[in-house]
């Protein structure tokens, strides 16, 4: 009964199809797309956004699917996080994404929030970003003019700023099959055991060739204006022999690749240190998936 926030007035549109949504997006000035609304509605209540027009796509079944096309997994941008989490395709083929989803928000939130929404909100702390970055996902951006594909690594431009043009909608996330025999892991450090924003989160994907690191992919969130890949660290590990010393020496580079800030959750210094620790741990866990055990300590 009580009203705690004033949702600004706006025009509400509920398109019947994706095409209609794209047309509205093209025609309407100052508009926002509503998917799960778990970020947008709150942001409107606190005055971060004051769109004139809101285009609701939450009911569009065209955007809700998880498909395995034999070489990639395609996820409709309107698919809820819980649906993705429960998908056997995802759990089997790209467990690193499921790991991230498992500790995102709560069950209630995951049943509403969508993967497209999490990406387009472009929070530095977006937890779906690091796994999709190490999986080298492609994003399908559609407008009435057609579609284009952008690698996720090029999608984020800054906090809440993306590659999307004014009239474009993220419609699909295409995740190529990971290399065979890839080990992958998502690790998140928050302020409590569940329902928490990350202080830092890391995803890794590793393959081995001739007892040496082959493919090494590392992505982090909450340590820069956008989620990012730590290319230099990846590069420095490639072709190196697999042992704890090598890993510990090289993951230190992560600190040079990130630009964390201090906020109410943690200091920049702590984030730097933890980026190194979590990257190392995620690499070790990825190797464990490949039955490579190193290091003296049991986890």
């Amino acid at each position: 009964m009580a009203i705690f926030y004033l949702l600004p007035r706006f025009n509400y549109y509920k398109p019947k199809s994706l095409n209609e949504a794209l047309k509205l997006l093209n025609d309407l000035e100052n508009s926002k797309v509503l998917a799960g609304g778990t970020d947008l509605v709150l942001d409107m209540k606190i005055g971060r956004y004051k769109p004139e027009n809101v285009i609701d796509i939450s009911h569009l079944n065209e955007l809700k699917y998880i498909k395995d096309d034999g070489k990639s997994i395609r996820i409709g941008a309107g698919t809820t996080l819980q649906t993705i989490l429960e998908s056997n395709i995802v759990r089997k083929k790209i467990p690193v994404l499921a790991e991230a989803l498992e500790i995102m928000g709560s069950w209630q939130l995951r049943n509403v929030a969508t993967i497209g929404g999490n990406l387009c909100n472009a929070s530095p702390a977006a937890d779906t970003a690091p796994p999709l970055m190490v999986l080298e996902a492609q994003l399908k951006l559609e407008s009435i003019e057609g579609a284009r594909y952008v690698p996720i690594t090029k999608f984020f431009h800054g906090p809440r700023i993306t590659e999307l043009k004014r009239n474009e909608l993220l419609t699909e996330i295409i995740i190529p099959y990971p290399p065979s025999n890839a080990g992958m892991k998502f690790l998140k450090l928050g302020r409590r055991a569940a329902h928490t924003l990350s202080i830092v989160a890391v995803a890794t994907l590793i393959t081995i060739k001739d007892d040496k690191f082959d493919i090494v992919r590392i992505a982090l969130n909450s340590v820069a204006p956008t989620p990012l890949r730590a290319y230099k660290t990846e590069e420095s590990l490639k072709d190196k022999p697999i042992n704890l010393n090598v890993i510990e020496e090289n993951v230190k580079r992560v600190a040079e690749e990130i630009k964390p800030i201090s906020d109410v959750r943690a200091s920049a210094e702590y984030r730097k240190e933890m980026s190194i620790v979590l990257t190392r741990d995620a690499i070790l866990e990825s190797l464990k998936m490949l039955n490579v055990k190193i290091g003296g300590e049991e986890f």
Binding site: R192, A193, A194, V264, R265
Partner: peptide, 16 residues
Amino acid sequence: VINANFTDYVVPTIMD
């Protein structure tokens, strides 16, 4: 007060 919400003020969950 800069953490006057449950995003930034954390209390333990059942998992803790």
